[in-house]
């Protein structure tokens, strides 16, 4: 057998074999192996709870695959709330005919990504739908994390905060766009897809007053900052030149007329904290491989509450708007 068939989702013997040989093998832990209708968990602290559906096409791209994103995405959502990732669920909707080898690779990638945080998959589901009813494979993961650092919120930015971005922006959106459109770009264009818990944990232990923290996924940096400006009713002023953008991403934007600030990221976050603490935060981030390009890109003021202002090196300025009405492919 080389391809997924409808019988694999039928609830019978074939499905049992698939679950045992593939999912249990890769994700095995005491709770999952109980095979009960639901996982029984014991959590005493306040928790964060999140869910996300993943539909990226192509399934495999430079720097990652749908499995890696499905784990990193949900783990990152928890991390952004100051929560240590603990338990995940994973539901697979598989299109009839998906190569079993592809599914194995994706599951192996999920397993490898799980090892980068304290998260475990404790429950799951598998459905197989007829050809054409979905595009190869959709994965939904939900996650529960233990809040170890409370009070992080989009509503907490205040004038005098510094805005830091954890690395160069737009790599995931650019990579998936180039892969989908068959655009061969020279240079090293690869997704930033990564589990951010390690970097976030280091910040949380750094005796900093973190006001806001968010991974810049769909809508990119522009969306996160606009949401923050509105939620906290503050103005965010950015130095355009300080925003790190890699050569290949800049190249793709130049060629196709996109803005890197609109591109999705899958392993890049933005941080707001009092300006005086920015050097310490940068020092912590730059000491780690994933965030070694972290940069201070701007600060919070009261100039135009609710708006994000982009300042050019030659003295002009404009608003950075929310990305709108663009023809962007499905990327996460």
């Amino acid at each position: 057998m080389t391809h997924i068939q409808l019988s694999h989702g039928g609830g019978g013997e074939e499905m049992n074999r698939l679950i045992h040989s593939l999912f249990f093998e890769a994700f095995g832990n005491e709770t999952l192996l109980q095979s009960e209708d639901a996982a029984a968990l014991h959590i005493k602290s306040p928790i964060a709870f999140t869910t996300d559906g993943f539909t990226v096409s192509p399934l495999f791209f430079e720097g990652g695959d749908i499995g890696k994103i499905a784990i990193a995405g949900t783990v990152n959502d928890l991390a952004m709330m100051g929560a240590r990732p603990l338990y995940l669920s994973a539901a697979f909707i598989i299109e009839e005919g998906l190569a079993l080898e592809d599914l194995r690779r994706i599951v192996a990638s999920m397993s490898a990504e799980l090892a980068r945080s304290s998260a475990r998959i404790v429950c799951g589901d598998t459905k197989v739908v007829p050809k054409g009813a979905c595009d190869k494979l959709f994965i939904t993961t939900s996650g529960i994390g233990e809040i170890v650092y409370g009070g992080i919120s989009a509503h907490r930015l205040c004038a005098g905060d510094a805005i830091i971005v954890s690395r160069d922006i737009g790599a995931h959106g650019a990579t998936v766009l180039a892969a989908r459109e068959g655009i061969g770009i020279w240079g090293d264009l690869r997704s930033d897809c990564a589990t951010l818990w390690g970097a976030v944990a280091a910040l949380l232990e750094g005796a900093l007053s973190i006001h806001a923290l968010r991974d810049a996924t769909r809508g990119g940096l522009a969306a996160v900052l606009n949401e923050w400006a509105v939620a906290s009713n503050v103005c965010i002023e950015l130095e355009e030149e300080a925003i790190p953008i890699s050569g290949p991403v800049r190249g793709l934007c130049e060629l196709l007329g996109f803005e890197a600030t609109d591109f999705a990221n899958e392993g890049t976050f933005v941080l707001a904290l009092p300006k005086a603490q920015a050097p310490r935060a940068l020092e912590i981030l730059r000491a780690m491989e994933l965030t070694c390009n972290a940069a201070l890109i701007g600060e919070v003021s009261q100039k135009r509450p609710g708006r994000v202002i982009l300042k050019s090196p030659w003295g002009s300025s404009r608003y950075l708007e929310l990305p709108k009405g663009e023809l962007l492919p499905r990327i996460c």
Partner: peptide, 15 residues
Amino acid sequence: SSEGACNAYFRFAEV
């Protein structure tokens, strides 16, 4: 269109 005047005014609004 990204080359349209209204689109450019909307996307790159002056402060």
